[in-house]
């Protein structure tokens, strides 16, 4: 069933016609063309679809679009606003924490949310916070290093 609904995505209010069955991921990718958010498993396991909902990372593939009406949705597209990479993104490049890149948007958002609530996480805390972001390429060590570097203010403050 279709209906028109206002959403707040990356700080802008947009009016979209959605189907009740649309997930937040469908809303972002198919209705709004924000394809930085990826779909891996579609069932809450891989974290490729991670976005921030009122600041908290969630799996967009298992949230219905209509559930987030009026909530603040932030996607990877909002992170390097103005063309300048975020310190987490810089650190991932620097450390080799991104290869194919499919997991990276989700990793960046999970890591940013972690640093927001815990500016100096231990390696163990980083691993726990990123346990819901699967990566098939890096073996995780370099992702953890990158988040530690970003927390320490290297390389990009």
């Amino acid at each position: 069933m279709k209906r028109e609904q206002d959403f707040i995505v990356n700080g802008e209010t947009v009016s979209v016609v959605v189907d009740t069955r649309d997930t937040l991921l469908d809303l972002l990718r198919d209705r709004l063309g924000l394809t930085g958010t990826k779909e891996g498993c579609g069932n809450g396991n891989c974290g490729a679809c991670t976005v921030l909902l009122d600041g908290a990372p969630v799996n967009a593939c298992i949230v219905l679009a209509l559930e987030v009406a009026g909530c603040d949705v932030k996607t990877i597209e909002a992170v390097a606003a103005g063309g300048r990479l975020d310190r987490v993104q810089e650190a991932l490049i620097e450390a080799g924490g991104t290869q194919c890149g499919f997991c990276t948007p989700g990793v960046v958002l999970s890591a940013k949310a972690l640093l927001e609530r815990n500016p100096h996480p231990s390696a163990h805390e980083i691993r726990a916070a990123l346990a819901g972001n699967l990566c098939r390429c890096t073996g995780y060590d370099k992702i953890v290093e990158a988040v530690q570097a970003a927390a320490a203010g290297r390389p990009n403050g």
């Binding site: 909902l53 990372p57 969630v58 999970s110 819901g132």
Partner: peptide, 9 residues
């Protein structure tokens, strides 16, 4: 229960 993303829901 699940990951941090899951626990946020």
């Amino acid at each position: 229960i699940g990951s941090y993303q899951i626990q946020n829901r």
